[in-house]
Simulated assay, not measured.
Amino acid sequence: MILNEKLKNYNIILASGSPRRQQFFKDLGLDFEIRLKEVDEVYPKRLYKYEISDYLAQLKALPHKETLKDNDILITSDTIVWHNEEALGKPKDKEEAIAMLKSQSGKMHEVISSVCFTTAKLEKTINHITKVYFKELTDEEIDYYVTNFKPYDKAGAYGIQEWIGHIGIKKIEGSYFNVVGLPVYEVYRTLESLID
């Protein structure tokens, strides 16, 4: 039996405003509802790499916990770009986006996504790391991308599925979908394990 049939008696709740994450759930053929609650995405400075995205994914689940029914499965997620021993979040403005892309030019960075699955009885968090290698980007390429694509809603100031990904990324090691915003294979497998 495939997963969407197994999940017939469950209510999948996706707590994400990301159109990319929502599209992945549609592509998987899963019925889900969207519930959004504002969370101040601040984490302790001592956290390192996937500890940051794990913490933020779990933090996003907190405001929903009291309202979960027995057949609800809440899914929250967070993605960071890890580069030069620091987490790159979403750029505040054009200057910060340009600076982020310049720092990643010609180098490898890691895209880390964590996904938290919360039910009335349990909480399980998974994460996935993808290594992304950028070519040397010219100032002209960076300026063109930021001006035309305005990547202010994307960690690390870029979307791999956009122009910069097509012309600037030499190779990746790990899940492509993870870089877009969700480690889809791992999410599917974890949902299977939750209801087996």
Rank of each mutant, 00 (worst) to 15 (best):
I2S: 06
L3A: 01
N4F: 15
E5A: 08
K8D: 12
N9D: 03
Y10T: 05
A15N: 11
A15D: 07
S18A: 09
R20W: 07
Q22A: 04
F24T: 04
F25C: 09
D27P: 00
L28H: 02
I34W: 07
E41D: 03
V42F: 12
K45I: 10
Y55I: 08
Y55H: 07
L56R: 02
A57W: 10
P63E: 01
P63T: 10
K65M: 10
L68S: 03
K69Q: 13
D70F: 13
L74N: 05
I75G: 03
I80L: 04
V81I: 14
H83M: 07
H83L: 13
E85P: 00
E85K: 14
K90F: 15
K92P: 02
K94V: 00
M100V: 00
M100W: 06
L101P: 14
K102E: 12
V111E: 02
S113T: 15
S113Y: 08
S114N: 12
C116E: 08
T119A: 08
K121T: 15
L122A: 11
L122H: 00
E123Y: 09
E123R: 09
H128P: 11
K131T: 14
K131Q: 13
V132Q: 03
Y133Q: 13
F134M: 09
D139L: 12
E140D: 09
I142F: 05
Y145T: 14
T147Q: 13
T147G: 11
Y152T: 14
A157D: 00
Y158Q: 08
G168K: 02
E173Q: 12
G174M: 07
G174A: 10
S175E: 09
S175G: 11
F177K: 15
N178D: 09
V179W: 03
V180H: 01
G181Y: 10
V184G: 04
E186I: 13
V187C: 06
T190Q: 11
L194N: 00
I195C: 08
I195K: 07
